[in-house]
Simulated scan of single mutants.
Amino acid sequence: MTVHAAPCAAVLAHESSALLLERLTVARRPGSSRWISTNADAVHCQGGRRGPQIVGCRFEGMHDDGINLYVHAMRVVEPRDSRTIVVDGAAPIETGDVLQFVDADSGAVLAETKVEAVGEGAQRAVQVAEELPDAVTAGTAVYNRSNALPGFRIDSCRFHDFRGIGVRLKASAGIIADSRFEGLSGCGLWIANDPGWSEGPLGSRDVEVVGNRFVGTPGDTSLQAWPHSAATVMIELFSGDDGPAAARAHERIVLRDNDIQQTARSAVFVGGASDVVIDDLRVQERAGVSWLATRGADLRVTGISGDIR
């Protein structure tokens, strides 16, 4: 399937699990005078119990991101006791789901615990397995990690020549492999939370980034002082004012066998993370700056060379 023009996103999947996209092209029609293909993301996935499988696709000319994977936050209406809270909204919650409780202003993860029982109605009483801290109060953000598109796969795709980020990721237990990111205004890969839009959860876990190539990305120098766009591959947690969050919620992220032509302040930025591995990275550094920047992170670096392919 080919999408040449769309007034919004090309593909929008809302509470949709295991979406399969193969050989999808989002691009301006050859010879067209249009400046953009879509006015929003190429693929926008909001909530689902299994992540999308996006294979052999090409994304060009969007006015926003290539792929965005996330789940929206719910809110605590009231805590009834140490293990029972009332939440708003109709987002899916089932027994056994893992809920994450977040102070949105500071970006602190207050608790993560499994659901033992769920009531009905627009405002549902939810009983969890462990006692919640006193910091969980009315207004606390709640993300359902079990409904945040785990098990995604982005493989053999090409992202080129558009305004935005290649992959904006808030999902876990997935892989981004053998893809090409070229001539984007923003980061190639952005693993973070988006507090301004209540998009999360906080922290991606068990993610592999293998065999990818990043060239001329990010290319908009006016954005590179902004913390969201300071690196080609950005791993970070943000507070409500887009500053650094208090948590170390990213865990077990592996970057292996990747090529980066550095155009930003850093080829790779790692913040708010533990157990990050960078291995077999070929990086063409930008003169006068380091290829790596970190904040509040635990990482291992091996096999770095300057010979990109």
Rank of each mutant, 00 (worst) to 15 (best):
G288M: 12
V301A: 03
V26G: 02
G96C: 05
V71W: 02
R28D: 04
E22G: 04
L149C: 03
G107N: 07
G31N: 10
V254R: 14
L169P: 01
F238R: 04
G303Q: 03
I308C: 15
R153S: 08
E251C: 08
G48T: 06
G219W: 05
D280H: 11
L19G: 05
S156Y: 01
V283C: 15
T25D: 11
V87R: 03
V254A: 08
D275M: 10
M62K: 03
I154Q: 02
N258H: 11
L223T: 04
E236Q: 15
V109C: 02
L223W: 09
E78S: 12
V55P: 03
A42G: 08
A13W: 04
T140K: 06
E208A: 12
G203M: 06
D242A: 13
Y143W: 14
G240I: 12
M74S: 07
F214K: 06
T2K: 14
E94I: 01
V268C: 03
D307A: 15
V98K: 05
D194V: 02
G200W: 12
T95R: 15
S172Y: 09
S33K: 13
R49I: 10
S229G: 00
A177S: 15
L99F: 01
R205C: 05
A247F: 00
R75G: 02
C45L: 15
A108K: 13
M1Y: 06
Q123C: 01
C8N: 13
Q127C: 05
G272F: 04
I85E: 00
Q284R: 14
Q262A: 03
G188V: 02
A122G: 04
E22P: 01
A264W: 14
C187S: 14
L110F: 04
T25W: 12
W291T: 00
L169D: 02
D257E: 09
P79S: 12
E182L: 14
A264E: 09
G243P: 10
R256H: 02
V276F: 01
E120N: 10
E116L: 12
V86W: 06
G303L: 00
V76S: 07
P133Y: 03
V136A: 08
R145Q: 15
V254M: 09
Q284E: 11
S185G: 07
V11N: 09
A13N: 00
D88Y: 13
T113Y: 10
L184T: 02
L20E: 03
A177G: 11
N144P: 12
G243L: 15
H4C: 01
V128I: 11
T302W: 00
S82M: 02
I165N: 04
P30D: 09
T140F: 08
S33Y: 11
R34M: 09
S229F: 15
Q262T: 02
R28Q: 07
R58I: 12
N144A: 15
P227M: 08
D279S: 11
R29M: 07
L299D: 00
W197Y: 14
D161V: 10
T113S: 06
Q224G: 03
I175Q: 13
V76I: 08
A9V: 10
D242P: 05
P227L: 10
L132P: 01
N212W: 06
D242I: 06
A129T: 03
D161I: 05
A245Q: 01
G272L: 09
R145A: 14
D298H: 08
R153Q: 07
H250Y: 08
P201V: 01
L202Y: 13
D178N: 12
D64W: 12
D64E: 10
